[in-house]
Design a protein around this nucleic acid. Structure first.
Lengths: 136, 136
DNA sequence: TTTTCTGCAAAGGTTTTGCACCAAT
DNA sequence: ATTGGTGCAAAACCTTTGCAGAAAA
């Protein structure tokens, strides 16, 4: 429910299409492509258009409510974002995803790489792919 | 020169368009988009088409001679790949990229995540972004 | 009522495919 | 001579934008 409050607090309107998309995104455990989001939200709001999905995705990503991930099939997927900087671990079979915090381990890796290359590291992209407990 | 040998060994033909594209890719230090590759290779082979670039990129990526990276601007870029599983560190200002091996550090992170989540991790995507020595 | 949001249509961009011609082996 | 490669055109996608009408505040 906090997503709706957040949108209201930022001055955005709560409309039927947005409710439908929010409901899909808040419940998903797998990274969904815009098309997949449309298909699911369509049930709750049949006249929903893909354009509206894209606009809301950009809005929510900007508010850090959503995280955009790279899927193995090349598409982009969207996942509800936890607070702070987390990373995604995605099941290659069922798509189910969990987030994990790997900052501590990355920091030592990053300082070693900085030392070795002379670069200063400012950002990173880390995703893991594997099999979830149910798919092993 | 070993790329050409590799192509020949795999039964692929050495043509003028391919020579032009190979020359560009073997020399680059920054991840190039297909359009950028076309623009540079065009000098050596003016009638080169973008389609041919795409086909060769897919071919070389399949042979593990090229690595596809995600650029911050959303485009895909291509870098010559070293042997083994390496990762890219890309300068956000000039685009210059280096590869680094972070397997040792990642292994401890990965086993910790496997322990915590119950997933089995089979693959990963790691890229670092920062400033190269010259751009700091 | 005022501003924002929506959905359509259309544009822009990237990547793939079909096909006839051409070139490397 | 064969086989595979090229380039054009066109198609298939994905994503963004312009705009008039609709809905939230």
């Amino acid at each position: 429910m906090k997503w709706k409050d957040r949108l209201a607090a930022e001055g955005y309107r709560l409309t039927a299409p947005r409710r439908a998309v929010l409901q899909v995104l808040q419940q998903t455990e797998t990274p969904l492509s815009p098309q997949e989001i449309l298909a699911q939200a369509h049930k709750a709001h049949p006249q929903l258009g893909l354009v509206t999905v894209y606009r809301l995705l950009n809005l929510l990503t900007g508010l850090n409510l959503l995280r955009r991930v790279h899927r193995k099939d090349g598409c982009h997927g969207y996942l509800p974002a936890s607070l702070g900087h987390h990373h995604a671990l995605i099941c290659q079979t069922c798509g189910r995803a969990v987030e994990f915090a790997g900052e501590a381990d990355l920091e030592s890796l990053i300082s070693r790489v900085e030392m070795g290359t002379g670069y200063r590291v400012e950002d990173h992209l880390l995703q893991l792919f594997g099999l979830c407990p149910g798919c092993q």
